[in-house]
Computed example of a mutant assay.
Amino acid sequence: MSDDEGSTARQSPGRWSDLKPRLISGGIIALVGITAVWLGGILFAIFASVVAGVIVWELARMHGTSVSLMLGGLAGVCCLLVSIIPEGYGLPLLMLPAFASIGRMHRARLSFAIFTAIIVLAGYGLVQLREDFGALWMVWLVMVVIATDIFGYFGGRLIGGPKFWPRVSPKKTWAGILCGWVSAGLVGLIFLPFLYVGPEIVSISVALSMASQLGDVTESAIKRKAGVKDSSHLIPGHGGFFDRFDGVLGAAVFLLLVEQIVDFPPIAV
């Protein structure tokens, strides 16, 4: 949720003024996203590619380039193509948007290229995760991120307390961070019997929550450096797609790594 978690109990009466547009737009995005996840196939590949392309466009705009639309479009197209081309043949397309951006950026070229590569990789990774493990696993992943987001938001606003990283995310508190971890663990516990897996799913869910929060904080740091409050104004109450999907990106990249170092999915005994 990037910069929208609560601070202390001493806040103005308008601290909940953004709640209604957040709930409406967040609900619509969640409905569209979960529907795309459930249907899978080319529809989910298109959804993930559009999201990745829009995020790269927002990132390019924050970096002040005049070719942000071109870079965002290239990222989206490459993400879609690598998702439908036979596995292995399209992998160079994951890196192409990053290389194309190097000569087009006026500042922070290397960091932009790295983030662009991560965003496109995350979009492609989500499609592969859906294909490899099925819709229910993707719903679990999305619910972990949503629970982290929602419980972190309310936990931070209601409990307050020490700030997590005031210079970058001044409204994010440790209370909100911890509430996010607990809620993610509960999501893992709820999904445990439906996914037919071992109890490790609870700790994996907490780790994904942490990765989601790191994605959130990283996006906050990018915005802080760029001097903007929101990545764009496409989503009422949330800002832009980067503001809304930063946690999903972090969780997706982490899950791609988890697959390589632990037995995933964890088998029930």
Rank of each mutant, 00 (worst) to 15 (best):
S111T: 15
A108H: 13
L93C: 04
L96D: 08
P92I: 13
A100G: 09
V77R: 04
A60I: 01
M62H: 02
I55T: 10
C79V: 12
A75N: 01
L69K: 14
A75I: 01
Y89L: 12
A52F: 00
A117W: 10
I55H: 04
A60C: 06
P86M: 10
A52N: 09
V67F: 14
S83C: 09
I102N: 12
G88K: 08
C78F: 00
V82I: 11
P97C: 06
G73D: 05
A100M: 10
L93S: 04
L110I: 15
V67E: 14
L80C: 07
I118F: 10
A75V: 02
S68P: 09
V82Q: 06
L81C: 12
L93W: 04
L110V: 14
V56C: 03
A52M: 09
L74M: 15
R107P: 03
L80F: 13
V54R: 03
L69I: 15
I84A: 07
L96P: 01
G76K: 08
C78G: 11
S111R: 15
Y89P: 02
M70A: 15
I102Q: 07
H63E: 12
T116S: 08
L93G: 01
V120W: 00
E58K: 00
L74S: 12
A75F: 00
I55E: 08
V56H: 00
A75H: 02
G90L: 03
L91M: 12
